[in-house]
């Protein structure tokens, strides 16, 4: 027996068709966007979207609130920056790979220490570990401390394509972020994702079915950390610098806002949420309201939690489901 005989054909097919249409439309927009908008700005959105998606893998699909994801974003950025600055022969994709690997390892370390704790204790341990990481980056000589790490070369992709060209850089970043997104999507819809879902729904029952729950959570944490590192690494190559901002706990807070605003536990929610937040920073940053940024974001956060618990994408999904049934 296959799924098609179990699920009403038309319903599933139409849902898949709708998803495919939406995906293609978004891809088309992403492909032409750099001709309409400023590529650097778009790349910033893409990097944060990937970061938020990585965070959402944990919060939305495992039910773990990490308050230390800035450490992975920062580590990806610093290690990539360090590698590309120190070893001039290194191509950018290898530098990014190195940064991602470092963030993945740090994720394994954090995960091993935190994963058996629940709820607020888990959040607090991740926060504490991320703060330790922050202070290491503040003091370590290679990061440039508060001045940040400047002049990271973009280099040539595979030694062939010059990434100083913003358009080439944009499509490279798009490819990275899309791959990261698809990896998360697959993770959620995999045998592993099924077990994660079961754990989130009823952890004691998952244990009684023989699953080593901590190991599954740990793997999800490591994947999430690695992809957050990938986002940070890519961001460093785009902007050619890495700074403490990315490793600061503000960043861990902001990614929560991005995810909640867009819709936690939806695949596209973090993409929408992060685009909005980055856009708000862009618009407000240049205006008289710039110094009110924290207040405005805080207000949005409160409204979001009080009125739109499902976030924007969650809200739209509910609406579509209700009206297309």
């Amino acid at each position: 027996m296959t799924t098609s005989t179990l699920y009403p054909d038309t319903l599933q097919a139409s849902r898949q068709r709708r998803q495919l249409q939406l995906g293609l439309a978004l891809l088309a927009i992403a492909l032409v966007a750099p001709f309409v908008a400023y590529p650097i700005f778009l790349m910033k959105i893409l990097c944060f979207a990937l970061f938020a998606c990585a965070f959402n893998l944990l919060l939305g699909y495992v039910g773990l609130l990490s308050f230390g994801h800035a450490a992975f974003l920062g580590t990806g950025g610093y290690i990539t920056g360090f590698l590309l600055t120190r070893y001039s022969g290194l191509t950018p994709e290898l530098g990014i790979l190195g940064g991602t690997a470092a963030a993945t390892l740090l994720g394994l370390l954090f995960g091993l220490l935190a994963i058996r704790r629940q709820g607020i204790y888990f959040a607090m341990i991740t926060l504490a570990l991320a703060q330790m990481t922050f202070f290491i980056y503040l003091q370590a000589p290679f990061t440039g401390g508060e001045n940040g790490m400047h002049g990271v070369p973009r280099g040539k992709l595979l030694g062939l394509i010059d990434l100083k060209n913003d358009l080439a850089m944009y499509y490279f970043v798009l490819a990275i972020c899309l791959s990261g997104y698809l990896l998360i999507r697959r993770t959620v819809n995999s045998p592993f994702g099924q077990v994660l879902y079961a754990i989130r729904e009823n952890e004691p029952r998952a244990i009684s079915l023989g699953y080593n729950v901590a190991a599954y959570k740990l793997l999800a944490f490591v994947i999430s950390a690695g992809i957050a590192g990938l986002a940070g690494a890519t961001k460093t190559v785009v902007f050619q610098f890495a700074s403490l901002t990315d490793a600061h706990w503000h960043m861990s807070g902001e990614v929560i806002l991005m995810t909640l605003l867009g819709g936690v536990g939806t695949l596209l929610g973090p993409v929408v949420g992060s685009s909005l937040v980055v856009w708000l920073h862009h618009v407000l940053g240049g205006s008289v309201l710039g110094s009110w940024m924290g207040t405005i974001l805080g207000t949005i956060f409160v409204l979001c939690v009080l009125l739109f618990r499902d976030g924007l994408v969650g809200y739209v999904q509910k609406f579509v489901r209700r009206n297309l049934r």
Partner: peptide, 26 residues
């Protein structure tokens, strides 16, 4: 199915599609 899938040994395989579990449906 989530109870049946453990003996398959693919429960950590985050790169495989969930449809790989369809053979357990019967």
């Amino acid at each position: 199915r989530v109870a049946l899938q453990r003996p398959l040994g693919t429960s950590f395989h985050f790169w495989k599609p969930a449809s790989s579990l369809d053979r357990l449906n019967q």
